[in-house]
Amino acid sequence: MNIIGCVTSMKSRVPVKLYKPTKWFHQVTEIQKQPDSSENIRGDLIPGSLVLRHVDSGSCNGCEIEISGCFSPTYDLESYGISLTASPRHSDGLLVTGVVTVNMREALQEAYSSVPEPKVVVALGDCAINCNGLRSGYGVAAAVPDLLPVDLEIPGCPPSPTKIIQSLRTVSKR
């Protein structure tokens, strides 16, 4: 165990510059009200926390960029109790983007069966909802609703973070 190495490594570290926001509250979504419970998409879901497993079943990555935008400090999706996880076992549902390609079809179904009940399927982007005009492509198997019971559709190509957050909040109820 090299203690000297430890000490030097601490010294040589570059001091971290923090990102300082000009205002603490300048989020876009802050203006929106918490969605009322009448927009209940599923009765058996427990409100307050929604953990999703993201599956890219054949997207162009445009939707992914918007998703990752949702988790930036500006939008901070996690502040509404919504987060992504690596293991479907930890999740409450799937967040599917893109058309379902032939190669991803089985994997998508397996991921779905690996999620414990009660679970939701969110189809994000026009591709996931209706193939966005790509249905006749040689590698395209189907849209998500053809394979899985979709509970929430977030249309757009790609949908904006504001829209994504707005829709997901109807599930997390926060």
Partner: peptide, 28 residues
């Protein structure tokens, strides 16, 4: 940590909500 990073952040009760939710979920 979130506030320092400039986020709005969920409140301190969030882990409790998650715990409560997990206790009512199916076990695989």
């Amino acid at each position: 940590k979130n506030r320092i990073e400039g986020r709005r952040s969920a409140d301190v009760l969030q882990p409790w909500r998650e715990t409560r939710k997990l206790f009512s979920k199916q076990v695989l």
